[in-house]
Every structure is written in C-alpha cells, then in structure tokens.
C-alpha cells in the first residue's frame, strides 16, 4: 500500500464511523490487510569488510581511516573508530541518500552571506563531493607541510593538523570549508560508533557497551522503577544475531 491508498482507507474508516446509526453490527472496510513491512521502510544492512562503493581510492580511505582513529582511538575502553567499522559505515552512508544530500536544500545560487543567515555553513556540494574534495585536500596539505601522506604522519602531528582544522588556523584551500569538513568527519565518526550495528559501525555493539546504552529495545516498564540501580542491560541490535 502506498501513502495515497493509506490516506484513502483512513478516510473510508472515518466515513464508516460518521455513518454510525446505532446498528449492532456492521462490516468495517478499508483496514489495510497487508501487514508485511514495505521494503522501502526497512533498514539497509551493511556488512563490515565488504567492497567499498564510494571510498574506492586507497589513499582517500587511508586518510579518512587515520582521521577517524585520531577522533576515536583504540584504548582500554574499546576499539578505535575504524576497528568498530566506522569507515564501512561512512562508505555506506556516502553511497546512499546521505551521500547524495537528499535531505539538504542545494539550489543555486549560494548567497554570499548564506552561512551568516543560516548560522551554519551552507553547501551546494553533496557530502559525497565534500569528502572527495576534502580528503584529497587534506592529503595534499600533509604532503606540502610534512612531505608525507596524512596517514603516515605521527599521531601527535595528525592531532595538530586536526586541531588546526577545528579551530580555523589551518586552511585546506579556497575550495574547502576546512572547519566544516572537520566537523562533518567528527559527526560521521560519532554516528558510526554509536548507531545500530546493522549500519556497519558499532561492531559487536562496542559503542553501546562503552556508554551502557541498551540498544533497540521498545519497552522499559520492567525497569522503570529500578532507579539508582546499575541495570547492565545487554544491548540489543535492531536485527539481532540471537
């Protein structure tokens, strides 16, 4: 059933109700009978370690992996961003509607003062295009300043460059909104680390275990009155393994 049919059937139900005349029995029509889930509404699973669809260039992939693993490095608390599948997550997102900027208004022309008006950076480019340009620019910057690929720099040097991007003291060039590109990568690394494992990141629910998030549960009535208690709820994925 599409949305139009659903609305019509709701209208039919309403009409049936409005016609009530106190009859004891009446057949009700218009209830949607098909209870299978529309494939369009289902999540798209991503299996980590699969073929890259957008980040197909080795250098680009090494660069973003290096950035992600400085934003969320491996430590005693859990795996690094890339170990938790965040690059797989990012690739899947860039291959789909997020990468296309489907939810963004991207009509030209871009006003000179658009960033000020909207109080946040505005782009005609899609996130997919911004990554393609941004990662190349970041690697070119490292080659120029350090004579090596960003991924091959020492972690503390990588941190310096990332901090410079974040506070606006480093520019990756005219074409790149450097600060906004840093923020985009930080946002996507976080999303990958804490979204449901079916989307490729948060592998073995590492992110959820880290912060004690119980996952895709629907109902907490069993626990609602157990305040102040450590519940240690086992996190649950939307598509459970067992």
């Amino acid at each position: 059933m599409n949305r139009r049919e659903a609305l019509f059937s709701l209208g039919a139900i309403a009409a049936t109700g409005a016609a009530a005349d106190g009859a004891r029995a009446r057949e009700m029509h218009g209830y949607p009978a098909d209870m299978t889930v529309d494939p369009e509404m289902l999540p798209r699973s991503v299996i980590p370690g699969g073929q890259m669809r957008v980040l197909t260039d080795d250098a680009d992939r090494r660069t973003v992996t290096a950035v992600f693993d400085r934003l969320i490095p491996a430590d005693d608390l859990g795996p690094s961003a890339s170990e938790a599948g965040c690059v797989d997550f990012l690739d899947a997102q860039l291959a789909g509607r997020f990468g296309e900027g489907a939810a963004l208004y991207r009509e030209k022309p871009l006003q000179q003062n658009a960033d000020d008006l909207m109080q946040t950076a505005q782009f005609i480019a899609t996130p997919r295009e911004r990554y393609a340009a941004g990662l190349k620019a970041l690697d070119a910057y490292a080659q120029e300043t350090d004579g090596a690929a960003f991924a091959d720099l020492q972690p503390n040097r990588q941190d310096e460059i990332l901090k410079g991007m974040e506070d606006g003291t480093i520019s990756l060039g005219e074409e790149i909104h450097t600060k906004a590109f840093f923020e985009l990568m930080l946002q996507n690394a976080r999303e990958g680390y804490f979204s449901d494992p079916i989307y490729g990141g948060n592998r073995d629910m590492a992110g959820w275990k880290l912060i004690g998030f119980p996952g895709a549960r629907y109902d907490f009535r069993l626990y609602a009155d157990r305040t102040g208690e450590k519940l240690d709820l086992e996190p649950v994925s939307l598509i459970p393994k067992d």
Binding site: I198, Y199, G200, S237, P240, K241
Partner: peptide, 10 residues
Amino acid sequence: DAREKLAEGY
C-alpha cells in the same frame, strides 16, 4: 513467500 531475515550488521 515471506521474505528472508535481513543480514545482521556484524
């Protein structure tokens, strides 16, 4: 003719 389970993400 019900669909198969979606792939697990991990």
